[in-house]
């Protein structure tokens, strides 16, 4: 038996067992999403009679995706005559929320990691330790306290509060950026300082562009996270329904038994953009996390 055959045979049992589990897992995930899409094309009455992802004779395909953009409505503040958002408005909110928060969530650890690794003050060496402590030590049940602080400074239910809450630097991405900057030579900066460049110019013009792919990956990860996030908005900014929060409101406030397929259409409309993003940037989304693999 040659080396290749030996390698192949020693993996056969493991490959069969784990491969079978993974195949089943993949089937379930795909089945849930494909089923969601197929039944979203049904009329609600037909969905109740036939929940299978195929159409019986006489059943019509009802493509609601364009209509849903204007017909899928939510009322964040209940009450007669209150303002409503349709899906177009909610998607706009999703973009504003996801882009703004992803920017601050990326920039904050990025600049802190940069100065911490390149400006050797005593405080700089303290920062990575602080981040590790914050990450390891769990703080439970601080939501009430955060809400009280935001209300006391009149920032509850505002976009600024979201930016402030998401602008923390004590995330694992501080450590990802920190290790990246530590491997970068400071000589590029020295050459620029000799030519008279200022500190902001060196940071923004020379050093940060050297880790541009990593910045983009982290931004992308945060963008997807915030696009999908609805708990934070429901808690701190409930009058600003993004598409994800809109799904929650629609499910809670509407008689979904009469609007099942509209709800599923909304689910698919929220899901499709991130799946497209995932398929286009899968290497960026998954590659960066591998880079950030924690060791020790």
């Amino acid at each position: 038996m040659n080396v290749k055959e030996r390698k192949k045979s020693r993996f056969s049992v493991y490959g069969l067992v784990v491969g079978a589990i993974l195949s089943l897992y993949s089937f379930i995930i795909l089945a849930i999403l494909v089923w969601g899409f197929m039944v979203s094309l049904k009329q609600t009455g037909e969905f109740w009679n036939n929940p299978y992802p195929f159409f019986k004779a006489g059943e019509k395909v009802e493509f609601k995706y364009f209509d849903a953009l204007t017909q899928f409505k939510v009322y964040p503040k209940e009450g007669f005559g209150s303002a409503y958002y349709d899906l177009i408005g909610m998607f706009s909110n999703s973009i504003i929320y996801a882009v703004g928060c992803a920017l601050v969530s990326t920039l904050s650890p990025l600049v802190m990691a940069y100065v911490s690794s390149k400006y050797k003050y005593k405080f700089s060496s303290f920062l990575p330790k602080l981040v590790v402590v914050v990450m390891v030590v769990p703080i439970v049940g601080a939501t009430a306290s955060t809400l009280e602080i935001l209300k006391s400074i009149n920032l509850y239910d505002s976009y600024l509060s979201m930016l402030m809450l998401k602008g923390g630097f004590t995330t694992m991405y501080f450590l990802v950026f920190y290790s990246a900057f530590q491997t970068l030579s400071w000589e590029y900066a020295e050459a620029a300082f000799v030519d008279g460049a200022s500190h902001p110019r060196v940071m923004f013009g020379i050093m940060l562009p050297l880790v541009k792919p990593m910045i983009f990956s982290v931004f992308l990860i945060f963008f997807v996270t915030y696009w999908n996030d609805y708990h934070t908005l429901l808690t701190y900014y409930p009058s600003f329904p993004t598409a994800a929060l809109g799904l929650f409101y629609f499910n809670r406030n509407t008689d979904t038994s009469a609007n099942e397929t509209m709800l599923l259409t909304g689910c698919m409309l929220v899901t499709i953009p991130v799946i497209v993003l995932f398929l286009v940037f899968s290497d960026k989304l998954m590659g960066n996390i591998s880079m950030g693999g924690i060791k020790g």
Partner: peptide, 19 residues
């Protein structure tokens, strides 16, 4: 496939999964 649920909205996935 393993990463896919991580990027899909939790609320969308939950609503579809329930049904």
């Amino acid at each position: 496939m393993l990463f896919l649920p991580t990027i899909v909205s939790t609320i969308a996935m939950a609503l579809i999964y329930r049904r």
